[in-house]
Write a protein that binds this DNA or RNA. Structure first.
Lengths: 205, 205
DNA sequence: GAATCATTGTGACATACATCACAAACTATG
DNA sequence: CATAGTTTGTGATGTATGTCACAATGATTC
Protein backbone atom coordinates (compact mmCIF):
# COMPACT_ATOMS: atom_id res chain seq x y z
CA UNK A 1 0.00 0.00 0.00
CA UNK A 2 2.71 2.52 0.88
CA UNK A 3 6.37 1.70 0.17
CA UNK A 4 8.77 3.12 -2.30
CA UNK A 5 8.10 3.88 -5.97
CA UNK A 6 6.02 6.75 -4.69
CA UNK A 7 7.86 9.80 -6.07
CA UNK A 8 9.47 11.94 -3.41
CA UNK A 9 7.74 15.00 -4.80
CA UNK A 10 4.40 13.40 -3.98
CA UNK A 11 5.52 12.92 -0.38
CA UNK A 12 6.47 16.56 -0.21
CA UNK A 13 3.09 17.65 -1.52
CA UNK A 14 1.45 15.44 1.08
CA UNK A 15 2.84 17.75 3.75
CA UNK A 16 1.19 20.68 2.00
CA UNK A 17 -2.14 18.88 1.87
CA UNK A 18 -1.80 18.04 5.54
CA UNK A 19 -1.17 21.66 6.49
CA UNK A 20 -4.17 22.80 4.52
CA UNK A 21 -6.49 20.08 5.84
CA UNK A 22 -5.54 20.99 9.40
CA UNK A 23 -6.29 24.60 8.61
CA UNK A 24 -9.63 23.72 7.02
CA UNK A 25 -10.58 21.61 10.02
CA UNK A 26 -9.79 24.49 12.36
CA UNK A 27 -12.08 26.69 10.32
CA UNK A 28 -14.87 24.16 10.80
CA UNK A 29 -14.91 22.74 7.28
CA UNK A 30 -15.90 19.07 7.27
CA UNK A 31 -15.96 18.27 3.56
CA UNK A 32 -13.89 19.49 0.61
CA UNK A 33 -13.62 18.57 -3.05
CA UNK A 34 -10.33 18.10 -4.85
CA UNK A 35 -11.11 21.35 -6.68
CA UNK A 36 -11.37 23.21 -3.40
CA UNK A 37 -8.24 21.65 -1.93
CA UNK A 38 -6.52 22.47 -5.19
CA UNK A 39 -7.45 26.12 -4.81
CA UNK A 40 -6.10 26.24 -1.25
CA UNK A 41 -2.84 24.49 -2.04
CA UNK A 42 -2.08 25.68 -5.55
CA UNK A 43 -2.07 22.11 -6.84
CA UNK A 44 -4.29 21.02 -9.73
CA UNK A 45 -7.29 18.90 -8.68
CA UNK A 46 -6.18 16.04 -10.92
CA UNK A 47 -2.72 16.02 -9.41
CA UNK A 48 -4.11 16.03 -5.91
CA UNK A 49 -6.32 13.02 -6.70
CA UNK A 50 -3.51 11.18 -8.44
CA UNK A 51 -1.17 11.81 -5.51
CA UNK A 52 -3.69 10.25 -3.13
CA UNK A 53 -4.24 7.30 -5.47
CA UNK A 54 -0.73 6.10 -4.63
CA UNK A 55 -2.02 5.24 -1.18
CA UNK A 56 -5.63 4.20 -1.65
CA UNK A 57 -9.10 5.68 -2.06
CA UNK A 58 -10.07 8.35 0.43
CA UNK A 59 -12.86 10.33 -1.24
CA UNK A 60 -16.54 9.84 -1.94
CA UNK A 61 -17.74 10.35 -5.46
CA UNK A 62 -20.26 13.11 -5.83
CA UNK A 63 -19.25 14.59 -2.48
CA UNK A 64 -15.52 15.03 -2.04
CA UNK A 65 -13.28 14.28 0.94
CA UNK A 66 -13.99 14.22 4.64
CA UNK A 67 -11.50 16.79 5.92
CA UNK A 68 -10.81 15.21 9.32
CA UNK A 69 -10.60 11.71 7.92
CA UNK A 70 -8.22 12.65 5.13
CA UNK A 71 -6.06 14.65 7.53
CA UNK A 72 -5.74 11.60 9.77
CA UNK A 73 -4.96 9.32 6.86
CA UNK A 74 -2.19 11.57 5.55
CA UNK A 75 -0.76 11.87 9.05
CA UNK A 76 -0.68 8.10 9.20
CA UNK A 77 0.98 7.80 5.79
CA UNK A 78 3.66 10.33 6.75
CA UNK A 79 3.96 8.70 10.18
CA UNK A 80 3.20 12.08 11.70
CA UNK A 81 0.58 10.54 13.97
CA UNK A 82 3.35 9.34 16.29
CA UNK A 83 5.88 11.19 18.42
CA UNK A 84 9.46 11.52 17.24
CA UNK A 85 12.36 12.32 19.50
CA UNK A 86 15.12 14.25 17.82
CA UNK A 87 18.51 15.60 18.81
CA UNK A 88 19.94 18.97 17.99
CA UNK A 89 23.63 19.50 17.35
CA UNK A 90 24.84 23.07 17.61
CA UNK A 91 23.87 25.41 20.43
CA UNK A 92 24.67 28.71 18.78
CA UNK A 93 22.11 31.41 18.04
CA UNK A 94 20.29 29.16 15.58
CA UNK A 95 20.31 26.24 17.98
CA UNK A 96 18.83 28.39 20.71
CA UNK A 97 16.10 29.62 18.38
CA UNK A 98 15.22 26.05 17.40
CA UNK A 99 15.10 24.94 21.03
CA UNK A 100 12.64 27.71 21.78
CA UNK A 101 10.58 27.01 18.66
CA UNK A 102 7.13 26.08 19.81
CA UNK A 103 6.62 23.29 17.28
CA UNK A 104 9.67 21.49 18.71
CA UNK A 105 8.41 21.77 22.26
CA UNK A 106 4.85 20.55 21.89
CA UNK A 107 4.32 18.92 18.48
CA UNK A 108 5.07 15.43 17.24
CA UNK A 109 8.72 16.35 16.84
CA UNK A 110 10.46 17.03 20.10
CA UNK A 111 14.05 17.99 20.67
CA UNK A 112 15.12 15.82 23.59
CA UNK A 113 18.83 16.68 23.73
CA UNK A 114 21.23 19.43 22.60
CA UNK A 115 24.92 19.00 21.88
CA UNK A 116 27.81 21.32 21.26
CA UNK A 117 31.59 21.01 21.11
CA UNK A 118 32.35 24.34 22.80
CA UNK A 119 33.61 23.56 26.34
CA UNK A 120 32.38 26.92 27.62
CA UNK A 121 28.81 26.02 26.65
CA UNK A 122 28.74 22.49 28.05
CA UNK A 123 26.67 22.34 31.20
CA UNK A 124 24.81 25.59 30.53
CA UNK A 125 21.10 25.41 29.80
CA UNK A 126 18.88 26.23 26.85
CA UNK A 127 15.45 26.44 28.42
CA UNK A 128 15.11 23.22 30.41
CA UNK A 129 17.80 21.34 28.53
CA UNK A 130 21.45 21.08 29.45
CA UNK A 131 23.95 21.38 26.63
CA UNK A 132 25.85 18.11 26.38
CA UNK A 133 29.32 17.41 24.99
CA UNK A 134 29.57 15.55 21.68
CA UNK A 135 31.12 12.61 23.54
CA UNK A 136 27.66 11.86 24.90
CA UNK A 137 26.11 11.70 21.41
CA UNK A 138 26.37 7.95 20.85
CA UNK A 139 25.02 7.09 24.29
CA UNK A 140 22.02 9.40 24.09
CA UNK A 141 21.09 8.33 20.58
CA UNK A 142 21.26 4.67 21.54
CA UNK A 143 19.39 5.06 24.83
CA UNK A 144 16.58 7.13 23.40
CA UNK A 145 16.35 5.36 20.03
CA UNK A 146 16.87 8.54 18.05
CA UNK A 147 16.43 8.39 14.27
CA UNK A 148 16.41 12.09 13.46
CA UNK A 149 18.87 14.92 14.05
CA UNK A 150 18.92 18.62 13.33
CA UNK A 151 22.26 20.03 12.29
CA UNK A 152 22.82 23.65 13.33
CA UNK A 153 26.60 23.82 13.19
CA UNK A 154 28.89 25.96 10.98
CA UNK A 155 29.40 24.75 7.41
CA UNK A 156 32.98 23.78 8.18
CA UNK A 157 31.85 21.30 10.84
CA UNK A 158 28.73 20.00 9.10
CA UNK A 159 30.14 17.01 7.21
CA UNK A 160 32.10 15.71 10.15
CA UNK A 161 29.16 16.12 12.51
CA UNK A 162 26.88 14.38 10.04
CA UNK A 163 29.33 11.49 9.83
CA UNK A 164 29.23 11.09 13.61
CA UNK A 165 25.45 11.17 13.67
CA UNK A 166 25.17 8.60 10.90
CA UNK A 167 27.71 6.38 12.66
CA UNK A 168 25.48 6.56 15.75
CA UNK A 169 22.52 5.30 13.73
CA UNK A 170 20.72 8.50 12.77
CA UNK A 171 18.91 8.03 9.46
CA UNK A 172 17.33 11.44 8.87
CA UNK A 173 19.15 14.75 8.96
CA UNK A 174 17.77 18.24 8.73
CA UNK A 175 20.71 20.52 8.01
CA UNK A 176 20.84 24.28 8.32
CA UNK A 177 24.45 24.41 7.12
CA UNK A 178 24.84 25.95 3.63
CA UNK A 179 26.75 23.02 2.20
CA UNK A 180 25.99 19.69 0.60
CA UNK A 181 26.45 16.76 2.94
CA UNK A 182 27.42 13.32 1.72
CA UNK A 183 25.76 10.38 3.44
CA UNK A 184 25.48 6.63 2.82
CA UNK A 185 22.51 5.21 0.91
CA UNK A 186 19.46 4.92 3.10
CA UNK A 187 20.18 8.10 5.04
CA UNK A 188 18.05 11.10 4.15
CA UNK A 189 19.11 14.74 4.29
CA UNK A 190 16.99 17.84 3.83
CA UNK A 191 18.38 21.34 3.79
CA UNK A 192 17.08 24.62 5.09
CA UNK A 193 18.97 27.63 3.81
CA UNK A 194 17.16 30.96 3.61
CA UNK A 195 19.93 32.51 1.54
CA UNK A 196 19.64 29.77 -1.10
CA UNK A 197 15.87 30.23 -1.14
CA UNK A 198 16.26 33.96 -1.69
CA UNK A 199 18.81 33.41 -4.45
CA UNK A 200 16.37 31.26 -6.40
CA UNK A 201 13.94 34.18 -6.34
CA UNK A 202 16.28 37.01 -7.27
CA UNK A 203 16.92 35.16 -10.53
CA UNK A 204 13.36 36.02 -11.54
CA UNK A 205 13.51 39.67 -10.51
CA UNK B 1 20.81 34.31 -22.68
CA UNK B 2 18.99 33.94 -19.39
CA UNK B 3 15.19 34.33 -19.38
CA UNK B 4 12.47 31.87 -18.70
CA UNK B 5 12.14 28.35 -20.10
CA UNK B 6 14.99 27.48 -17.79
CA UNK B 7 13.36 24.96 -15.41
CA UNK B 8 13.05 26.20 -11.86
CA UNK B 9 14.77 23.08 -10.59
CA UNK B 10 17.87 24.10 -12.53
CA UNK B 11 17.86 27.47 -10.78
CA UNK B 12 17.64 25.73 -7.44
CA UNK B 13 20.59 23.49 -8.28
CA UNK B 14 22.54 26.58 -9.30
CA UNK B 15 22.45 27.69 -5.66
CA UNK B 16 23.95 24.35 -4.67
CA UNK B 17 26.72 24.71 -7.22
CA UNK B 18 27.39 28.21 -5.99
CA UNK B 19 27.72 27.06 -2.38
CA UNK B 20 30.12 24.32 -3.38
CA UNK B 21 32.22 26.52 -5.65
CA UNK B 22 32.59 29.06 -2.85
CA UNK B 23 33.65 26.28 -0.55
CA UNK B 24 36.15 24.93 -3.09
CA UNK B 25 37.61 28.40 -3.61
CA UNK B 26 38.09 28.81 0.15
CA UNK B 27 39.98 25.53 0.18
CA UNK B 28 42.27 26.90 -2.51
CA UNK B 29 41.01 24.81 -5.42
CA UNK B 30 41.32 26.69 -8.70
CA UNK B 31 40.08 24.10 -11.22
CA UNK B 32 37.44 21.39 -11.03
CA UNK B 33 35.91 18.96 -13.51
CA UNK B 34 32.19 18.31 -13.74
CA UNK B 35 32.90 14.89 -12.24
CA UNK B 36 34.47 16.47 -9.20
CA UNK B 37 31.74 19.06 -8.76
CA UNK B 38 29.27 16.24 -9.17
CA UNK B 39 30.87 14.35 -6.31
CA UNK B 40 30.74 17.39 -4.04
CA UNK B 41 27.14 18.28 -4.82
CA UNK B 42 25.54 14.88 -5.35
CA UNK B 43 24.53 15.85 -8.89
CA UNK B 44 25.55 13.76 -11.90
CA UNK B 45 28.30 15.29 -14.03
CA UNK B 46 26.07 15.24 -17.11
CA UNK B 47 23.30 17.05 -15.30
CA UNK B 48 25.69 19.66 -14.01
CA UNK B 49 26.99 20.32 -17.52
CA UNK B 50 23.50 20.40 -19.01
CA UNK B 51 22.33 22.83 -16.31
CA UNK B 52 25.15 25.20 -17.18
CA UNK B 53 24.43 24.85 -20.91
CA UNK B 54 21.19 26.79 -20.36
CA UNK B 55 23.33 29.85 -19.76
CA UNK B 56 26.38 29.47 -21.95
CA UNK B 57 29.74 27.75 -22.03
CA UNK B 58 31.89 28.08 -18.95
CA UNK B 59 34.32 25.17 -19.07
CA UNK B 60 37.46 24.28 -20.96
CA UNK B 61 37.58 20.94 -22.69
CA UNK B 62 40.26 18.65 -21.41
CA UNK B 63 40.63 20.71 -18.24
CA UNK B 64 37.38 21.46 -16.48
CA UNK B 65 36.08 24.66 -14.89
CA UNK B 66 37.88 27.59 -13.32
CA UNK B 67 36.39 27.61 -9.85
CA UNK B 68 36.50 31.35 -9.23
CA UNK B 69 35.28 32.22 -12.70
CA UNK B 70 32.35 29.81 -12.57
CA UNK B 71 31.41 31.02 -9.10
CA UNK B 72 31.28 34.59 -10.35
CA UNK B 73 29.26 33.61 -13.41
CA UNK B 74 26.65 31.75 -11.36
CA UNK B 75 26.45 34.67 -8.94
CA UNK B 76 25.79 36.92 -11.90
CA UNK B 77 23.12 34.59 -13.31
CA UNK B 78 21.34 34.40 -9.95
CA UNK B 79 21.83 38.15 -9.47
CA UNK B 80 23.61 37.37 -6.22
CA UNK B 81 26.48 39.65 -7.16
CA UNK B 82 24.42 42.66 -6.11
CA UNK B 83 23.03 43.78 -2.75
CA UNK B 84 19.38 43.23 -1.96
CA UNK B 85 17.52 45.10 0.73
CA UNK B 86 14.73 43.11 2.32
CA UNK B 87 12.09 43.72 4.96
CA UNK B 88 11.06 41.38 7.72
CA UNK B 89 7.50 41.19 8.97
CA UNK B 90 7.03 39.60 12.37
CA UNK B 91 9.22 40.40 15.36
CA UNK B 92 8.51 37.32 17.46
CA UNK B 93 11.12 34.79 18.48
CA UNK B 94 11.69 33.75 14.87
CA UNK B 95 11.91 37.34 13.70
CA UNK B 96 14.52 38.10 16.35
CA UNK B 97 16.55 35.06 15.34
CA UNK B 98 16.47 36.15 11.70
CA UNK B 99 17.53 39.67 12.58
CA UNK B 100 20.52 38.30 14.41
CA UNK B 101 21.36 35.83 11.66
CA UNK B 102 24.80 36.73 10.41
CA UNK B 103 24.01 36.17 6.73
CA UNK B 104 21.30 38.84 6.92
CA UNK B 105 23.62 41.34 8.52
CA UNK B 106 26.62 41.16 6.25
CA UNK B 107 25.80 39.21 3.07
CA UNK B 108 24.14 40.30 -0.15
CA UNK B 109 20.74 40.07 1.52
CA UNK B 110 20.27 42.63 4.26
CA UNK B 111 17.24 43.13 6.44
CA UNK B 112 16.78 46.89 6.47
CA UNK B 113 13.49 47.15 8.39
CA UNK B 114 11.36 45.09 10.79
CA UNK B 115 7.61 45.36 11.22
CA UNK B 116 5.09 44.04 13.69
CA UNK B 117 1.45 44.72 14.53
CA UNK B 118 1.83 44.35 18.30
CA UNK B 119 1.64 47.87 19.83
CA UNK B 120 3.75 46.80 22.80
CA UNK B 121 6.64 45.93 20.50
CA UNK B 122 6.54 49.03 18.32
CA UNK B 123 9.43 51.30 19.11
CA UNK B 124 11.49 48.62 20.83
CA UNK B 125 14.69 47.52 19.18
CA UNK B 126 16.02 44.32 17.68
CA UNK B 127 19.74 44.87 17.57
CA UNK B 128 20.14 48.24 15.87
CA UNK B 129 16.73 48.25 14.23
CA UNK B 130 13.56 49.72 15.61
CA UNK B 131 10.39 47.69 15.22
CA UNK B 132 7.98 49.66 13.05
CA UNK B 133 4.20 49.51 12.85
CA UNK B 134 2.63 47.92 9.76
CA UNK B 135 1.26 51.33 8.79
CA UNK B 136 4.80 52.28 7.79
CA UNK B 137 5.14 49.28 5.43
CA UNK B 138 4.07 50.99 2.20
CA UNK B 139 6.27 54.03 2.81
CA UNK B 140 9.41 52.07 3.65
CA UNK B 141 9.01 49.67 0.74
CA UNK B 142 8.53 52.54 -1.68
CA UNK B 143 11.36 54.67 -0.29
CA UNK B 144 13.91 51.89 -0.22
CA UNK B 145 12.78 50.12 -3.40
CA UNK B 146 12.21 46.80 -1.65
CA UNK B 147 11.43 43.75 -3.80
CA UNK B 148 11.81 41.00 -1.22
CA UNK B 149 10.17 40.31 2.14
CA UNK B 150 10.51 37.65 4.80
CA UNK B 151 7.29 36.57 6.46
CA UNK B 152 7.70 35.48 10.06
CA UNK B 153 4.14 35.90 11.30
CA UNK B 154 1.68 33.29 12.63
CA UNK B 155 -0.10 31.16 10.04
CA UNK B 156 -3.38 32.92 10.74
CA UNK B 157 -1.91 36.28 9.70
CA UNK B 158 0.25 35.08 6.81
CA UNK B 159 -2.15 35.46 3.89
CA UNK B 160 -3.29 38.91 4.91
CA UNK B 161 0.25 40.10 5.51
CA UNK B 162 1.33 38.70 2.16
CA UNK B 163 -1.53 40.56 0.47
CA UNK B 164 -0.31 43.83 2.02
CA UNK B 165 3.26 43.20 0.94
CA UNK B 166 2.24 42.37 -2.61
CA UNK B 167 0.04 45.46 -2.73
CA UNK B 168 3.12 47.49 -1.74
CA UNK B 169 5.04 46.07 -4.68
CA UNK B 170 6.98 43.18 -3.13
CA UNK B 171 7.55 40.48 -5.72
CA UNK B 172 9.41 37.81 -3.75
CA UNK B 173 8.29 36.34 -0.46
CA UNK B 174 10.09 33.94 1.83
CA UNK B 175 7.50 32.57 4.22
CA UNK B 176 8.11 30.74 7.48
CA UNK B 177 4.39 30.28 8.08
CA UNK B 178 3.20 26.67 7.71
CA UNK B 179 0.49 27.47 5.22
CA UNK B 180 0.15 27.92 1.46
CA UNK B 181 -0.07 31.54 0.42
CA UNK B 182 -1.93 32.65 -2.68
CA UNK B 183 -0.34 35.42 -4.70
CA UNK B 184 -0.89 36.99 -8.14
CA UNK B 185 1.04 35.74 -11.15
CA UNK B 186 4.54 37.16 -11.25
CA UNK B 187 5.00 37.08 -7.49
CA UNK B 188 7.21 34.30 -6.15
CA UNK B 189 6.88 32.55 -2.81
CA UNK B 190 9.24 30.06 -1.17
CA UNK B 191 8.51 28.29 2.06
CA UNK B 192 10.68 27.29 4.97
CA UNK B 193 9.02 24.87 7.35
CA UNK B 194 11.20 22.54 9.38
CA UNK B 195 8.23 20.46 10.46
CA UNK B 196 7.22 19.82 6.86
CA UNK B 197 10.82 18.89 6.03
CA UNK B 198 10.92 16.42 8.90
CA UNK B 199 7.58 14.92 7.87
CA UNK B 200 8.90 14.14 4.40
CA UNK B 201 11.67 12.13 6.04
CA UNK B 202 9.67 10.18 8.61
CA UNK B 203 7.74 8.67 5.70
CA UNK B 204 10.90 6.76 4.78
CA UNK B 205 11.71 5.58 8.31
C1' DG C 1 -37.40 6.18 -7.02
C1' DA C 2 -36.08 8.11 -11.47
C1' DA C 3 -33.48 11.63 -13.33
C1' DT C 4 -29.93 15.03 -12.80
C1' DC C 5 -25.81 16.67 -10.92
C1' DA C 6 -21.26 16.44 -8.75
C1' DT C 7 -17.08 14.35 -7.94
C1' DT C 8 -13.78 10.63 -7.65
C1' DG C 9 -10.15 7.39 -9.36
C1' DT C 10 -7.44 6.19 -13.16
C1' DG C 11 -5.84 4.69 -17.88
C1' DA C 12 -4.15 7.12 -21.84
C1' DC C 13 -1.57 10.82 -23.32
C1' DA C 14 1.54 14.85 -23.10
C1' DT C 15 5.26 17.29 -21.23
C1' DA C 16 9.30 17.97 -18.63
C1' DC C 17 13.40 16.34 -16.84
C1' DA C 18 17.48 13.21 -16.57
C1' DT C 19 20.81 10.22 -18.66
C1' DC C 20 23.61 8.56 -22.34
C1' DA C 21 27.09 8.69 -25.47
C1' DC C 22 30.03 10.85 -28.58
C1' DA C 23 32.17 14.50 -31.63
C1' DA C 24 34.84 18.40 -30.78
C1' DA C 25 38.30 20.73 -28.45
C1' DC C 26 41.75 21.28 -25.37
C1' DT C 27 45.99 19.53 -22.49
C1' DA C 28 50.11 16.96 -21.78
C1' DT C 29 54.04 14.48 -23.14
C1' DG C 30 58.19 13.17 -25.39
C1' DC D 1 54.23 18.56 -33.65
C1' DA D 2 52.04 14.15 -33.46
C1' DT D 3 49.83 11.15 -30.40
C1' DA D 4 47.37 9.81 -26.26
C1' DG D 5 44.55 11.21 -22.72
C1' DT D 6 40.80 14.38 -20.71
C1' DT D 7 36.79 16.73 -20.43
C1' DT D 8 33.23 19.64 -22.29
C1' DG D 9 28.72 20.66 -24.59
C1' DT D 10 24.77 18.70 -26.56
C1' DG D 11 21.62 15.94 -29.65
C1' DA D 12 19.26 11.66 -29.07
C1' DT D 13 17.00 8.77 -26.01
C1' DG D 14 14.83 7.22 -21.86
C1' DT D 15 12.25 7.93 -17.61
C1' DA D 16 9.43 10.32 -14.56
C1' DT D 17 5.97 13.52 -13.69
C1' DG D 18 1.76 16.13 -14.88
C1' DT D 19 -2.65 16.66 -17.41
C1' DC D 20 -6.74 15.11 -19.64
C1' DA D 21 -10.95 13.08 -20.03
C1' DC D 22 -14.31 9.89 -18.86
C1' DA D 23 -16.61 5.73 -16.76
C1' DA D 24 -18.20 4.75 -12.34
C1' DT D 25 -20.48 6.00 -8.27
C1' DG D 26 -22.82 8.34 -4.92
C1' DA D 27 -25.64 12.70 -3.62
C1' DT D 28 -29.60 15.47 -4.48
C1' DT D 29 -33.99 16.84 -6.12
C1' DC D 30 -38.78 16.52 -6.96
Amino acid sequence: MTQTNVPDIVIRRLTTYLQTLKHMAELGKTVASSAEIGRWTGVSPAQFRKDLSYFGEFGRQGLGYDVGFLRDQIERILKSDQDWHIVLVGAGALGHALMNYQAFQEGHFQIVAVFDNDPSKIGTFVGQREILPLERLAAVIAERHIDIAILAVPAAAAQQTADSLVACGVRSLLSYAPITITVPRGVHVRYIDPVASLQTMTYYL
